[in-house]
């Protein structure tokens, strides 16, 4: 489902004398449907960078990034957008929403985008929010005013609203209490069970043990500092 071949990434800082900073090279990995892979490595090793490259948020310098038959490294913007709408979900660490939009609609939006009827989408959103213990009185408020933990749970609910065949999870269990953490892990298990290919970053080792089928250490992709 997700297949990386010899992917590299570097940043060119034009405004700092054109300095080129290589951050990743020779990255290759594959994730089959129903499989969950944990990315490991020290902070700064490039776990989030790799995820962003897969999501198309960062432009790969070379290599192939195949997700559901689309090469994200070369695809046209509209193909990547279609991929993100239908196939590839991403739960980042930060919630980015239009101010003023009610939480319920924020969570339902990915479903509306794939053509689910508004009522059905909101029902699904309500189920997820309830499961993640977001009090119902907050559903009509914008999540921009919520606490960090609440925002993260809204973000997770949004990420799991549509049943994506491939998912990227960046620290989904960080700073959650035991009960919510269990809910998130159950959502991941359910996604795996329906055949989703998942790549996750978990600092929470117990969580990683529970849901990941294997781990990939991204330090292997870190360019050897030669110069």
């Amino acid at each position: 489902m997700i297949e990386l071949q010899n992917v590299s990434k570097s940043f060119t800082l034009h405004n700092q004398g054109g300095a080129v900073i290589p951050v990743m090279e020779g990255a290759s990995l594959g994730v089959a449907p129903g499989e969950c892979i944990g990315l490991t490595g020290a902070s700064g090793a490039g776990k989030s960078t790799l995820m962003r490259v897969i999501y198309g948020n960062y432009l790969a310098a070379s290599g192939r990034v195949m997700v559901g038959g689309v090469d994200v490294a070369k695809a046209a913007p509209r193909d990547i957008l279609a991929l993100r709408r239908e196939t590839l979900g991403y739960v980042s660490q930060f919630l980015r929403v239009v101010p003023r939009v009610p939480t319920l609609d924020v969570v339902a939006e990915p479903l509306l985008a794939v053509g689910v009827a508004p009522d059905a989408a909101r029902d699904r959103a309500a189920t997820l929010l309830a499961g993640l213990n977001i009090p119902e009185r907050l559903w009509q408020l914008s999540p921009t005013t919520f606490s960090g933990g609440e925002q993260q749970r809204v973000n997770i609910a949004r990420g799991f609203a549509h049943s994506y065949p491939a998912m990227l999870l960046d620290e989904p269990t960080a700073s959650l209490d035991a009960q919510n953490r269990a809910t998130v892990l159950r959502l991941i298990e359910e996604a795996k069970a329906r055949g989703a290919a998942i790549i996750g970053i978990f600092h929470d080792e117990a969580a990683r043990e529970q849901v990941c089928d294997r781990c990939v250490d991204v330090s292997a992709f870190t360019p050897k500092v030669a110069a």
Binding site: F11, T12, H14, N15, N57, Y58, L59, P77, L81
Partner: peptide
Amino acid sequence: ETGLTDQVLDDPQHAYTQL
């Protein structure tokens, strides 16, 4: 420069876009 909005904003390639 052209591209996906979040890619251009988060990983700008051209000197002017970076600025």
